[in-house]
Computed example of a mutant assay.
Amino acid sequence: MLSITNLVKRYGKQNAVDDITFELGGGEVVGLLGPNGAGKSTTMKCIVGLLRKTSGEIIIGGHDHLSVAAKRLFSYIPETPYVYDLLTVREHLQFIAQAYDVKDWKGKAQDLLDLYELDDKADKLGRDLSKGMRQKVSICCALLPDPQVLFFDEPMIGLDPKAIKNTRQVFRDLKNQGKTILVSTHLIDSVESIADRIMILKSGKIIGNDTIANLKTQMMQSEASTLEDLFLELTKDEGN
Rank of each mutant, 00 (worst) to 15 (best):
A99P: 05
Y100A: 00
Y100E: 02
Y100L: 01
Y100P: 01
D101F: 11
V102E: 05
K103R: 12
K103P: 10
K103H: 10
K103I: 07
D104H: 01
D104G: 01
D104F: 00
D104Y: 00
D104V: 01
W105A: 04
W105Y: 07
K108C: 05
K108S: 10
Q110E: 15
D111Q: 10
D111H: 13
L112M: 03
L112H: 02
L113V: 04
L113I: 02
L113Y: 02
D114H: 08
D114N: 08
L115G: 03
L115W: 04
Y116A: 00
Y116H: 00
Y116L: 11
D119H: 15
D120N: 13
D120C: 07
D120G: 06
K121D: 09
K121Y: 13
D123S: 08
K124V: 11
K124I: 10
L125H: 06
L125V: 05
G126D: 02
G126V: 10
G126P: 03
G126N: 07
G126Y: 04
R127Y: 14
R127F: 09
L129W: 06
L129N: 06
S130P: 01
K131Y: 08
K131A: 04
G132E: 07
G132H: 07
G132P: 03
G132S: 06
G132D: 11
M133C: 12
R134M: 15
